[in-house]
Design a protein around this nucleic acid. Structure first.
Length: 198
DNA sequence: AGTAGGATTAGCT
DNA sequence: GCTAATCCTACTC
């Protein structure tokens, strides 16, 4: 697949299969992030060591660490230098469900990959997978495109957990999910935390 | 060198 | 509904 606008790619990723280390899932929820023009994007303030992969070639995995304990992953989809990416937020496990249960320490199958950090745990993805080429047969993680989802089965809305102007659902309704799919994560607006008293 | 805050989750009320 | 957990990243001197 060639590079495309991150919103186009986000819609196209719904229903695609992500294969990783004995577990396969069908993507049900994503969020588009543009480059330096998008205040919600990690690339908004330009290239840094963390977001370097976003500026590279499409089809690679951008992994980042957040909240002191979680890893999330993106599909890079822009031409080199543009830094477009799609956050993979949720999926339905379709193969290797026993292994996914072990990794997630739960038998609630709907929750195995319901949320971006849960999804990376289910697939065995960690920060060291940053930069992986998802279209190289030799990679431990791969993306298999499926037929595009019909537009009427795709819903959109504000991005989850994005604070500041980038979280404005009027300007950036760039979260996309499959209508009525039980593995789509619940919406939660960004809420700034108070600093611990000390 | 210090510090504020985060593309979240699990657990409790 | 609310909040602690926990450390990396980037911003500000």
């Amino acid at each position: 697949m060639t590079a495309a606008d991150s919103r186009t790619t986000a819609r196209r990723l719904l229903g695609a299969h992500l294969l990783g280390r004995g577990v396969s899932l069908r993507i049900t929820e994503v969020e588009a992030y543009a480059g330096e023009a998008d205040p919600g994007s990690h690339a908004f303030r330009g290239k840094t060591p963390r977001n370097e992969v976003m500026f590279g070639p499409p089809g690679h995995l951008y992994c980042y660490f957040t909240y002191g304990m979680h890893t999330c992953c993106n599909y890079v989809c822009s031409e080199p230098g543009e830094a477009g990416a799609v956050l993979i937020r949720a999926g339905e496990v379709i193969d290797g469900i026993e292994l996914a249960r072990e990794r997630r320490h739960t038998d609630k199958d709907r929750e195995l990959a319901r949320g971006p950090a849960r999804l990376t745990v289910a697939l065995g993805i960690s920060l060291s997978d940053n930069g992986t080429d998802l279209h190289d047969d030799a990679s431990p993680l791969r993306l298999d495109w499926q037929d595009p989802f019909p537009a009427e089965r795709i819903l959109s809305g504000p991005r989850v957990g994005v604070s500041g102007p980038g979280g404005d659902g009027e300007r950036f309704p760039w979260r996309f999910w499959i209508d009525a799919d039980p593995t789509v994560s619940p919406y939660r607006p960004a809420k700034p935390r108070r600093r611990r008293a000390g």
